[in-house]
Structures are given as C-alpha cells and as structure tokens.
C-alpha cells in the first residue's frame, strides 16, 4: 500500500503547494530556462502520480506490481473486485482519457485557428525587409505564428512608425526566438492542462507563469542582438501603444494588474544577474528527481517482478 499513498501525496503536493511556491518565487525571472524545465517536470510528474495513485490503488488486491496485477485481472484469476478498487480503476481510465482528449482537442483547435489566421495574414500583408510580413494597421503590434513547417513573423505599420531601427530589431529577434525555440509547443501543453483541469487552483497560474517565462526567454535572445536599454524601450513603447481590449471576462483576468506586472517583471529582470550555474544545475536536478519519483514508484515493482 506504500506506492498508492506515496503517489497520492506527491500528486497533492504537485497540484497545489509546489506550483504555488514556484509561481511566487523571484528566481525564475533570473533563469527562465531552468524554471521552464521545472514547470514541465511538475506538470508531467503531477499527471503521472495522479493517474498512478489511482491505478496502483485499484490494482493492489490483484498482485504486488502493475504488470502481475493487470495480468491477473485480465485472465480472470480474480473473480471478485471490491467497489473501491473498481472505482479507482475507472477514475484512472477516465482521467487518462480526459487528459489525452483535451491535449488532442487543444492542439487541433489551435492548429485550425493558426491556419485561418495565417491565410488572413498572407492576404493582408506584404513582405518587409526585416524578413517579417507587414500589415497595414495603425496599432503597433508584432507577433509570430509558429508552425510545424513554416512560421511567420508579423509587424504592423504602426509599429514601424513607433520604433527606431534598433528597437525594431529587438522586437523581430524576440519573435524569431519564439519560433526557433518552439515555445508554442510548451504553451499548447500548458493550455491543454488548464483546459482539462480548469477547477485546479494552480492551472491558470501555471499557464500564465509559463507564458511569462517564454517571453523572458525570447527577451534574452533579443538581448544578444541589441543593448538592454534598446530592448527595454521596445517593451515599453509597444506595450504603451496598444489600447486595452474591450472588457471581456477572460480579458479581465489577463488585463489590469497582471499585464503591468508582467511588463514590469520583464523590465526589472534586465538589471539582475542570472542565477549562478551551480544553482541552475540544482533546479534541473530537482526537475529530474521530480520525474524520477513517480516513474520509479510505478516501474520498480514491475522491474523486480520481471528480474
């Protein structure tokens, strides 16, 4: 009974206190790459331990490890199943199905929207010398449409009016970093996590934190091309030029304080030194450990039975 209990404890820890602490911590802004690895480890280990706890609990009466128990269950070695165990097994199956289905739905939906948006952009834009596509809009915007085969960076006429050459370079480099580092893949996974577990207190927060870390990573790439001051000016100018969107429920959640906090965080970190290498390595080691614990708890008895 140790494995289900340990997995359940881990699941609870990763569902609430651990991500909450990470979301409140100050160091991720100094080392966004390491923090992003940790967030992904928390999400994967969290899902694994949640499903694993239900599965090991449900199968516990049928054998000492997952493999033997499943075999006994399938071959009918056991003629009777307690309702608690049956419930846990159903829960495991439902949760797995729910998570996978939401991931697939989120990916399909955003790919469809991306394609539609890309068609519109291609019709409404012309090539610009920076390698981006130029749309004829007075609102100063820059964004990228990351795709599996081709990606587009879009800048608006309003942006070109607003920024000087260096600032524009910062923006374009920032967008290119999103594309080359495939930030869309991480973001879609966390969006799917939020879509599957919207009642999870931390899922929304996690999605927002990950979104911010991705922006910081892209900023770091832009900093290699332009001085920090130029990037800072670009961040403020583009942020300032946009009008606040119409008040919608979701927009309200994102807008207001959160947005200025985000901008402020991106500016403030420019003056801070990155984490020391040794500390970064510790964070990555913690992420690996986090993934190893549920994996070992689930796989070790199986391995022992096979040997």
């Amino acid at each position: 009974m140790i494995a289900p209990l340990a997995l359940a404890a881990l699941a609870v820890a990763l569902a609430w206190p651990v991500p909450l602490l990470l979301a409140r911590a100050g160091w991720p802004a100094r080392s966004p790459a390491a923090a992003l690895v940790l967030w992904q480890a928390i999400a994967i280990a969290g899902g694994l331990s949640m499903i694993g706890a239900l599965l090991t609990f449900g199968l516990a009466p049928f054998g000492p490890d997952l493999l033997t128990a499943t075999r006994n269950l399938v071959t009918g070695e056991v003629d009777r199943i307690e309702s608690w165990n049956a419930l846990a097994l159903c829960g495991a199956a439902l949760l797995t199905g729910h998570l996978v289905l939401n991931l697939v739905l989120t990916v399909v939906r955003s790919e469809r929207q991306r394609r539609r948006h890309e068609q519109l952009v291609r019709l409404l834009s012309s090539p610009h010398e920076s390698g981006a596509r130029l749309i004829d809009s007075p609102a100063p915007v820059a964004y990228c449409l990351p795709g599996a085969l081709s990606s587009i960076t879009v800048v608006s006429a309003g942006l070109l009016d607003l920024l000087d050459e260096g600032e524009l370079r910062a923006v374009v480099e920032h967008e290119k970093a999103h594309v080359t580092q495939r930030h869309d893949v991480v973001l879609v996974a966390f969006r799917a996590w939020y879509a599957s577990l919207p009642w999870f207190p931390i899922a929304f927060r996690a999605q927002r934190e990950v979104g911010m870390l991705v922006e910081m990573l892209a900023d770091d790439t832009a900093r290699r091309a332009v001085p920090d001051g130029v990037l800072a000016r670009a961040i403020v100018l583009v942020g300032a030029g946009q009008d606040r969107p119409l008040a919608e429920p979701e927009a309200a959640e994102w807008g207001g304080e959160a947005s200025v906090t985000e901008l402020g965080a991106r500016l403030a970190r420019l003056g801070r030194a990155p984490l020391p290498r040794a500390v970064e390595s510790l964070v990555v080691a913690a992420a690996v450990l986090l993934l190893a614990v549920p994996t070992v708890l689930l796989a070790l008895p199986v391995a022992r039975a096979l040997l």
């Binding site: 964004y143 961040i235 946009q242 919608e248 947005s259 985000e262």
Partner: peptide
C-alpha cells in the same frame, strides 16, 4: 491579435501584453 477573443489569441505569441 489584440486579445478581444482570448481563446483565439492563444495561437499567437505577442511581443507584449496590453497596458493602459
């Protein structure tokens, strides 16, 4: 792009968020 439709903007990665 400017986030009026929050779900749809999910496909884009914008340079910055909105500020008043």
């Amino acid at each position: 792009v400017l986030g009026g439709a929050s779900d749809r903007t999910a496909v884009l990665e914008r340079f910055v968020g909105q500020v008043s």
